[in-house]
């Protein structure tokens, strides 16, 4: 029998209104035990009010080799930022 428990990624919601943020990972035999382990490992000091655990194998990550292709094109589109535009002096709330 395989005793290498699968890896789970742990996401913690610090409080209602905020999204779950990645905190780290745990090994556990099933989802329920992963939640219990995540509770013990990542929320001992009231770090959260809600937990998500996701099998690490279910995460699809972008390839570091593609970083330039994926993210560089945004660099020359400064017009997506409000500071790009000229507004006459004295005009407010815009």
């Amino acid at each position: 029998m395989n005793s290498n428990w699968p890896l789970w990624e742990v996401f913690v919601r610090a409080k209602n209104g905020l999204s779950h943020k990645h905190a780290g990972s745990v090994h556990a035999a099933d989802a329920r035990m992963a939640i219990e382990a995540a509770r013990d490992v990542y929320t001992r000091r009231m770090e959260g009010v809600s937990l998500w655990v996701v099998p690490s194998t279910a995460i699809v990550a972008s390839d570091p080799k593609e970083t330039t292709d994926l993210f560089e094109p945004a660099a020359d589109k400064v017009y997506r930022h409000p500071t790009f535009y000229t507004i006459p002096d004295g005009v407010k709330n815009i």
């Binding site: 997506r80 409000p82 535009y85 000229t86 507004i87 005009v91 815009i94």
Partner: peptide, 15 residues
């Protein structure tokens, strides 16, 4: 956060 440029580009056109 993303909307802020929308209004300014429109006002700039009007200016």
């Amino acid at each position: 956060k993303e909307e802020s440029f929308h209004q300014r580009q429109g006002y700039e056109i009007m200016c």
